[in-house]
């Protein structure tokens, strides 16, 4: 195995593109190293992107925030601007692992690992976040929910990496929330995850919404029916019931060691209702 630590994105892309065997990007390594140790992944080339200064930046862009691929969870959590605008994305990222893991793990690594249970991704998808993919043929912008193809499998082409994620600008009275269900209190993997992002008008009527579910299908996905159930309402009990029903209906989980189909469908609705309530109260400034 070869290990490279380039200092520019261009060099990283060339290294990845030139490797004839299996190449892997290393960000925080909190997924990759675990996979390598357990023999699940045996790359021929590992390209560490943490030496690329630009990827450590969180910058304002068109009223939103661009978050570099090497920004660890702990840095995101300490960024007042991102926290104020996107508390749901930040809380999803901060749920990853422990304090030690937070010092390393990145939101982009969480995205590119393509686990259906990734904790930062439902909130990012609900936020309408856009990943910037850079490759040998230049760069392209991709909605985060389109990065994963299936568990552990991405839509990135050979030589491509994700350089950053853009969280868009925020109107007034807008907020988001992420909740996951785990049997324990921490150090666990989501059995269901739900991100809700909504915008209210001055009267408290929902004008825009996005709802995403994790861990209940092969990919993290948006639930348009749940968003529709919110838009035009004051996010009252009836709307919340409709959101819950839409999410329970949209979930297509499997029976496995982490939960039954019946349980996960039901809890998808429960979490959607709770996350929507939190997002609403945050948007109103009453949370």
């Amino acid at each position: 195995m070869r290990f490279e630590a380039p200092t520019t994105v261009e060099d990283a892309v060339s290294l990845l593109a030139a490797e004839s065997g299996m190449a892997r990007v290393l960000a925080g390594g909190t997924d990759l190293l675990v996979q390598m140790k357990s023999g699940i992944s045996e790359p021929d080339l590992v390209v560490d992107i943490k030496r690329i200064a630009a990827l450590h930046e969180i910058s304002e862009e068109d009223g939103g925030f661009r978050i570099g691929a090497a920004v660890p969870g702990i840095a995101l959590g300490e960024h007042a601007g991102v926290k104020a605008a996107w508390p749901g994305v930040v809380e999803g990222t901060e749920l990853i692992g422990s304090t030690q893991v937070q010092g390393r793990a990145t939101m982009v690594g969480n995205l590119c690992n393509c686990s259906p249970a990734a904790d930062s991704v439902p909130a990012m998808a609900a936020a309408g976040a856009i990943a910037r993919v850079v490759g040998p043929n230049g760069s392209r912008d991709v909605p985060v929910e389109d990065i994963a193809q299936g568990p552990g499998k991405s839509t990135l082409a050979k030589g491509e990496l994700v350089d950053s994620v853009l969280l868009p600008a925020r109107p007034d009275h807008a907020s988001d929330a992420y909740l996951r269900f785990i049997p324990r209190t921490e150090m666990d993997i989501a059995v269901v995850g739900c991100g809700v992002n909504l915008v209210l008008d001055a009267n408290g009527t929902c004008t825009d919404a996005r709802v995403a579910l994790g861990a209940v299908a092969a990919r993290i996905f948006l639930v348009p029916a749940a968003a529709d159930a919110l838009i035009g309402t004051s996010v009252d009990d009836a709307a919340l019931d409709a959101v819950a029903a839409a999410c329970s209906a949209a979930a297509t989980p499997i029976d496995d060691k982490r939960g039954t189909v019946e349980f996960r469908k039901k809890v998808s609705g429960v979490l959607a209702r709770r996350a929507a309530t939190i997002a609403r109260d945050r948007a109103k400034g009453t949370a």
């Binding site: 209190t185 993997i189 496995d256 060691k257 982490r258």
Partner: peptide, 16 residues
């Protein structure tokens, strides 16, 4: 055995 590791064999953590 489906859960031969501490991720899916859930012993309590301190905060539980």
């Amino acid at each position: 055995l489906q859960n031969a590791g501490f991720l899916d064999y859930r012993i309590p953590v301190a905060s539980d």
